[in-house]
């Protein structure tokens, strides 16, 4: 379990804690303490939350893109001191994945699984330019980021790419149920990147170019890609992708399971 300190600036305070508290709980975190204050810039909400480290990125994404959130900061909470006063630097509202940058800077506070946001951000324009022939860029990213950041970085770049592909190619039409979204959006989009087969809510990726035997991918890019792609196309928006088998750990093919 990790404890995070999250500081949020919003236009108004009414219902802020309730709305953001729901997001915290929905991501498997528990709200330990909170403080709500008002100044001339708006309402400042500081929350100390505790939850599973693997859900940290998802929580940050949801908070950073929440309609009530104008600016957002998140850092590991160290020590049991009371939450600091609810004021702080007003950073521009973070795009989906930029939020972790605020805590990725000081080396001492880098969480073990945090993405290398700088590397990812510098690579994303190239990925957009060369899409769908992006495997070389992803392999480069795998090699260049530190081992402890590799999975989170691949997950992040996958989410950003998936969300971008959705907006570019699949945004027109009704919100779909999960099964329809996988069939109509997930499968054709992923086929642009790899050879796949659909088996219900599982996708089998054959000869994944990112998951060579003894590699380190763990299918994180494809998991993030599907989460970004499908998260925007269905209601409710929480999509979770789990890697059941991966070639990099000796399986014949990679199998991803998609769920709400």
């Amino acid at each position: 379990m990790i404890e995070l300190e999250i500081q949020i600036l919003s236009d108004r305070r009414e219902g802020l804690l309730v709305e953001l508290g729901r997001t915290v709980v929905a991501n498997g975190f528990t709200l330990l303490r909170q403080r709500l204050a008002q100044d001339d810039r708006g309402a400042w909400l500081t929350m100390i939350v505790r939850g599973p480290p693997e859900r940290q990125l998802a929580l940050e994404e949801e908070l950073a893109t929440h309609s009530r959130v104008r600016s957002f900061e998140c850092s590991l909470f160290e020590g049991g001191a009371a939450p600091p006063p609810a004021s702080g630097p007003a950073v521009a509202r973070a795009p989906i994945a930029a939020a972790p940058a605020t805590f990725a800077a000081p080396a001492s506070s880098v969480p073990p699984a945090g993405p290398d946001v700088r590397q990812v951000e510098s690579m994303l324009p190239q990925i957009a330019k060369d899409y769908p022939r992006i495997t070389p860029w992803l392999l480069t990213l795998q090699r260049t980021v530190a081992a402890e950041s590799r999975e989170a970085s691949l997950l992040l770049v996958g989410r950003r790419t998936g969300a971008w592909v959705f907006k570019r190619d699949y945004a027109m039409g009704a919100k779909l149920g999960l099964a329809d979204a996988i069939k109509r959006i997930g499968v054709p989009a992923l086929r642009a990147l790899a050879t796949i087969e659909q088996h219900g809510e599982q996708l089998h990726i054959q000869n994944s170019p990112l998951c060579s035997p003894n590699g380190h991918s763990g299918c994180k890019f494809f998991s993030g890609y599907l989460e970004g792609l499908l998260g925007a196309s269905i209601e409710p928006q929480n999509v979770f992708v789990r890697s059941l088998y991966c070639r990099s750990t000796g399986a014949v093919e990679c199998i991803l399971e998609i769920s709400h």
Partner: peptide, 10 residues
């Protein structure tokens, strides 16, 4: 076709 599909057929 219009709301459920995606792509040219849509």
């Amino acid at each position: 076709l219009a709301f459920n599909l995606r792509g040219p057929l849509q």
